[in-house]
Amino acid sequence: MKTTDKENWLKEYTEFTTSDEVSVPPGIFSNLKKRLFPNPWMVFGKVLSIHVGVGFLSLGICHQFGLNPFNTEHSLMDWFMRVGGHNFCMIACGVFFMTTTYLLANLILSLEELETIRRFEWLQSGVLGVASLAAFYFFGAELVATFAGLWIIGAFIGALLAIEGSYKFRRSLA
């Protein structure tokens, strides 16, 4: 900072510290609060909507528990199975299923909404994971406890990595 800039800054700062306080209408803080701290339920609603859409579409690429609504020939599931066997496949499918949701959410949601997700990441990932398994079951998937457990672990890993990675990326851009 040049001397004149510094002098100007100091002059303005003195003016700032001695400024008369103006009454702030209460609506301003409530507006700000809504922007900075979005309602967790609203954010969860948005993530859930994204998850329903993305999760369904992702079945075209990775058949979860054999579900193949688009009748596609190739699936990441088969590849995971060949590469690492059944257990690895379950974990990898869980990772894929949740990662796609949170990566898309990263593009749609605001940084403050991502912060809200981050505050409840365990709870939210758990609820989404269990709800997804329930949906698979509802649509005819045969769930075996061990595999479902491995899938849930994968879902947690995918969700937490995607949430943290997305948040850090967006934070660096802000």
């Binding site: 003016e15 700032f16 400024s19 103006v22 702030v24 803080f29 609060k33």
Partner: peptide
């Protein structure tokens, strides 16, 4: 919230 209450009046004045 407390920081906002303490400083918003002065910021708005400025």
């Amino acid at each position: 919230e407390i920081l906002f209450e303490r400083h918003s009046g002065r910021v708005l004045g400025y």
